[in-house]
Simulated scan of single mutants.
Amino acid sequence: MLVFSIKCWNCRSSNDPKCADPFDNSTVPITDCKQEKGLSHLPGVRPSMCRKIRQKVNGEWRYFRDCAYLGEVGIQGDERFCLMRTGTYNIFIEYCTCNSKDGCNGSSALNPLSLIFVLSASAILKWLF
């Protein structure tokens, strides 16, 4: 079995404001994901990616960066793109995963307008064909 190892930034903006964007890693630890203990509800699953979660709840932005256990890199394998979700009660979540290099969950690689353009173009193409 191939063992994949990646190092990811590990922080929460609630504990360290430098974890937010723009990201400042001067006080943020980088974690070797192969050293993570694992999760009790996912026995045998090891982290193989980095993640960055940006969420807005009732007007307040929160950022989380750490090792990722499940999911797919980016959207259809392109880590320049992040999954975005909105919900009721003024909730917005952007979930980004990457594995291209150590510390890849440091900064945003994508302009949100680019994602809107790509998603809009995809929807138009599906509608036409």
Rank of each mutant, 00 (worst) to 15 (best):
R12H: 11
L110I: 13
T97C: 02
K7N: 11
S107E: 13
D102E: 03
Y69G: 08
K37H: 00
L110D: 06
G103L: 04
T31P: 00
L119M: 12
L2N: 04
N99C: 10
Q55D: 09
N10C: 08
N58Y: 12
S100M: 09
A109E: 05
Q76R: 13
F92E: 11
W9G: 04
E60I: 10
E36D: 15
L2S: 14
F23Y: 05
G44N: 02
Y89M: 15
L83R: 13
Y89H: 15
S14C: 04
E94D: 07
D24F: 09
G74A: 01
S100R: 11
W61A: 09
W127A: 13
I91C: 06
S108Y: 05
F129L: 09
R46K: 14
T31I: 04
E79N: 09
A20Q: 12
N58L: 14
R54C: 03
F4H: 14
G87N: 03
W61Y: 06
F64H: 05
V28I: 15
Y95R: 00
H41M: 10
F4E: 10
N15Y: 02
S120I: 12
P47E: 02
F92V: 10
F81D: 09
G38S: 06
K34S: 14
F81K: 11
S48H: 06
K37P: 01
I6G: 04
G103F: 02
K126H: 01
N105Y: 04
S100N: 12
G59L: 02
I124H: 07
V118H: 12
A68V: 01
L115H: 09
L128N: 05
V3Y: 03
V57S: 15
K18H: 10
K52L: 05
N58G: 14
K126C: 14
F117I: 10
C98W: 03
N105L: 03
K52E: 10
Y63Q: 03
Q35I: 04
L42Y: 07
N25D: 15
P43D: 11
I30G: 05
D24R: 07
G38R: 06
V3R: 12
K126L: 15
P112A: 12
G103S: 05
N15F: 00
T97L: 01
L113E: 08
G77V: 11
N90S: 15
R65H: 11
D66W: 01
R62W: 00
N15D: 12
L39H: 10
Q55Y: 08
V45G: 07
Q35F: 02
P29M: 06
A109V: 14
R54S: 09
N99V: 04
V118P: 03
L128C: 03
P29K: 10
N10S: 11
N99R: 14
L125R: 12
R80M: 02
C96W: 01
S114H: 13
I75W: 07
D66E: 06
M49Y: 06
F64W: 12
G71N: 10
S5A: 15
I116H: 12
S48L: 03
A20W: 04
P29G: 07
C11E: 00
N25I: 05
S114M: 11
W9I: 04
F117V: 10
Q76V: 09
R65A: 05
L113G: 06
G77T: 07
S48T: 15
R62A: 14
I116Y: 08
R51D: 03
S26T: 15
P17W: 02
T27W: 01
E60S: 13
